[in-house]
Design a protein around this nucleic acid. Sequence first.
DNA 1: ATTCCAATCTTGACGCTGATAAGATTTTGT
DNA 2: ACAAAATCTTATCAGCGTCAAGATTGGAAT
Lengths: 202, 202
Amino acid sequence: MKRDNYHHGDLRRLLIETGIELISHEGEEALSLRKVAKECGVSSAAPYAHFKNKNDFIGAIQQHIMDLFTSSLEESIHKYNDSNEILPKMGKAYVMFFYENPLYYDFLFSRKNIKIQLSLNDTADNENLPLEILKKTAVRIFEKTNMSEKTIQNKIIAMWALVHGLSAILTMPNVEYDDRWEERIEKIIKSISISHRNTGDE
Amino acid sequence: MKRDNYHHGDLRRLLIETGIELISHEGEEALSLRKVAKECGVSSAAPYAHFKNKNDFIGAIQQHIMDLFTSSLEESIHKYNDSNEILPKMGKAYVMFFYENPLYYDFLFSRKNIKIQLSLNDTADNENLPLEILKKTAVRIFEKTNMSEKTIQNKIIAMWALVHGLSAILTMPNVEYDDRWEERIEKIIKSISISHRNTGDE
DNA sequence: ATTCCAATCTTGACGCTGATAAGATTTTGT
DNA sequence: ACAAAATCTTATCAGCGTCAAGATTGGAAT
């Protein structure tokens, strides 16, 4: 991590990468600006040229990880054409992303930083948020049925809550994971996304 | 917060209470041993007579809040005798506990401390953990049906994931809460706990 | 009652942290 | 080529968790 120039050239990116490295190996607790700076071969105050403060830095990392997460979800859409399979597979992708990198879950959803928000509202600048992808996909599938809009909305929320909750549970320490989970996840998700009864509002 | 004695008499309890006060008002971020100590009118090192370190202190607070949570769940059992209503009401109690005190959710499930664990395993010393209460109640209700043990287990996990996920979602900042949520929560939970199809393993 | 021990609390210190100010160095725009 | 802006360093600050050493106290044993 040496450099010959006074200016680094690409410090911002390097800081973020080093930060993610640290988080995915030792957790958010271990993340300190000074440590990251030293690891990048730069003085303690250098990061402040690229980030307003630590929270801003964390926000940038969250954004980066959130992009990874979003990509993972979108990939699962293109992979499966059968509309009966898309939602369960997507839900599985949701859960698996965090299972494969448990520290990401804690980091992404620890409420220290308010830059990245999952929201139920329709807002214009939310295009690539996980919930929006899930929403769009679900609506596209459900609107072929004769369910009311309210019912569809409830189903989407239920689905989101389910996969999010599964992610939380599976990333808890001491929850041992075995292969049964893989099919279990799909089956549980299908039980919500397929059954057309008992979710209605009318 | 004055005292005339050198010995405080009940410092441990006071520290915990002050810590909870701080967390529920300003969040875990704002919690520092020194601040709590000063608030209690005691020196910075005094807490170390009662707690091994900060993590130990946090663990004690988590235990305390977890007890509140558990009590809230158990209360919902005694309140409703209709077995068709117990699970939805209990799920609602699960979610409402955290809705009414959003900072508790972050604090209870931030993985900094490993003392309090929700676990899927059956262990002897887990009697009063939320999942155990949920499990026992669910098994008691489901065993009247003709569902297989595996199916029942899947339903319990789905239910837990659902209410946990709903708690996570509803405690997110910028998710505005209105009265519709109250019935929505129950309906969504019922859609899992009542429908006997599409969850099976065979 | 006196003695002694263990629990409790204080003082003072250490290294780490986030943050800022002041100044040095380099790049960029004109 | 020169000025302005961006980038980085050094020095410094207060706050943090933690520990060691010592003071104070309450209670148990004698």
